[in-house]
Design a protein around this nucleic acid. Structure first.
Lengths: 192, 192, 192, 192
DNA sequence: CATGAATGAGCGTTCATTCAT
DNA sequence: GATGAATGAACGCTCATTCAT
């Protein structure tokens, strides 16, 4: 792995764990195993590094979700896989949670200006994946004819609320809870 | 208005606009029209002021929503009022948006520790208000028999996603869009 | 006791325990049971209060030593009493130690300017008491004919060194040690 | 001279002249000709710098005294050299006075906690040098058989008292006075 | 006389960024 | 390219002093 990637991986972990302002360049450099000055060879400044890290992370996650979803046959299974993968990535790597949603990037006060620099296409894609699945389900007459844009936002919103709940109340996510969420989403979507 | 309240109001605006780390005590004091030291008469430190401001804001918003909702007759109208009020508060005072959701308080990495000090009852109440309305609708046989907890999270999630969308893509919220959201939510909930 | 005295007593304890810079007016006022502003009715400022406290303390200690010494008959007993009283005052009220010597007032860097305001007569008196005793002993042919000024400084110096040793190495002063010091001083002074 | 040493030298002068609390890091940095942040590259914090400065100074002085004393032949000459060197260092560099004695470090209220971090061996050595000389004198039957520990403390105490006197009464130390002190000490120690 | 709410100057410390090597 | 020593702007917090009541 080249130095630039090492720096991004270190950033991902540290920004994720401690946030933008409480992460310092020195510790990123140390974790990446490079000199402090080296960071500035590859990134203009701290904000540039942060944006780059977010885009990198969003991209990775999108790909992982897309890969997982594509392997499923029915819209219902795809929806369940989408939700599953979302939480799996979270459980696998807690530090990535923080970068995982458009929401937190966006509402995160400190970086509201940063959001202007994040690749919007990547964020849009996250929604598009789910919207496509829902529309497929409606077309195949498996899902109720709800507005697909709204339904997409509600499902992504549900996942965010659950993540919030988990973090805010300091509770653990277990498979039973995820199953419960998936079943109810499917029930809301499905005809009969 | 006493000095403590002036300080909280100034905090609300500045923390909201610029976030925790980029807001400094001096500017809060200046905006509140008090001396820097005065802030420390009423709040133990910056974190204490931040928590107090969040709780104050959450409380105010809850009350406003509750008042608005109570005056409506049917569950559908209540739901619409809930959504309306949510966005109205946002539009009235953009700076409050940042404090307006459990989500951003929670996911905001920098203040993840702060969340432990936020009055959880206030946050729970935000959800409870909506959940009660949905259950009322189900009981009166007006809404489909969806899981009320999940539905609550999806609707609040939808609002958060919309707020995110608005901020992220730097677009304005207009009445037409809000109407569109409300109608679709009601359509999803309602029997027939 | 009037308010001024209450303030001085509180100062004595707090300045003694925590030093000039780490003692704040508010805690003095609180311990004295008066308002913060009241302190400024009786003393021009913090430095004035400090000087007044030192002078008050030095005076009290001098009187106590003088009273104790006068009741003894022979120069040797007086010397022993002088040393005893010195340490007794220390043991009684550790906080006073800090004010107890010209030395610490003087060498105490922070307050080197203060020393110009301390009543020099009081300090001189401390030495004079001992010098008189030594000269009495020499006149009565009980003590060796050492230079009384030097001997005075050496005995007071010895006491200071012991106090330093005790505080620096964080050990306790016991009666055995004091006895040991007294005996050796007397042995050095006495003929035969 | 490297930057660390420049900082220590500047600290020595400023802490010495103005004391711990009235010396600020910025002025130390300025005097040392380095940036404020540079101080924190070499020292953990202000207290660490202070302790380091004291230890540095104590060490230097011990060495100077030891070197001077070793070159003398008889115990009497050594004692005189000890006293001479003590005062010489003082006269050379008034600012060092403040660091020169265990006493002031110790009794200095504000820094009583610091004393726990000062290398006690260095302080003990200061006394040991003198005690060894006295015991040598006693062994060689040149000095009276006084308790060497007590005598050591009295002589060091005498020097401290003289320093105090000088500073407190704002007078100058001259060679005549030093000669007077030395002669009387030798007279007290010597047989016949 | 007495109070304590209010003030703001002042300082220790951090850390993003630069630049000589 | 790579480094890390050096920098100084910036900020949270304290506390002596004032003054309206």
């Amino acid at each position: 792995m080249d130095k630039k990637n090492k720096i991004i991986e270190a950033s991902l972990e540290l920004f994720g764990k401690k946030g933008y302002f409480e992460t310092d360049i020195e510790s990123i450099a140390k974790k990446a195993g490079v000199g402090k000055g080296t960071v500035y060879l590859y990134f203009k400044n701290k904000k540039d590094l942060f944006i780059s890290t977010i885009n990198y992370s969003l991209n990775n996650c999108n790909e992982e979700i897309l890969n997982a979803v594509e392997r499923m046959d029915t819209p219902s299974l795809k929806i369940e896989k989408y939700i599953d993968t979302f939480f799996k990535i979270m459980l696998e790597n807690v530090s990535k949670i923080k970068f995982f949603t458009m929401n937190n990037v966006n509402l995160n006060n400190q970086i509201v200006d940063f959001s202007k620099n994040i690749d919007k296409k990547i964020v849009v894609k996250r929604f598009q994946i789910l919207k496509d699945i829902i529309e497929e389900g409606i077309e195949k007459n498996l899902f109720k004819d709800f507005n697909s844009e709204i339904m997409t936002m509600m499902i992504v919103g549900l996942i965010h609320m659950e993540i919030s709940r988990v973090m805010f109340f300091d509770i653990q996510i277990d498979q039973k809870r995820i199953k419960y969420l998936k079943e109810n989403v499917i029930k809301i979507l499905s005809k009969e």
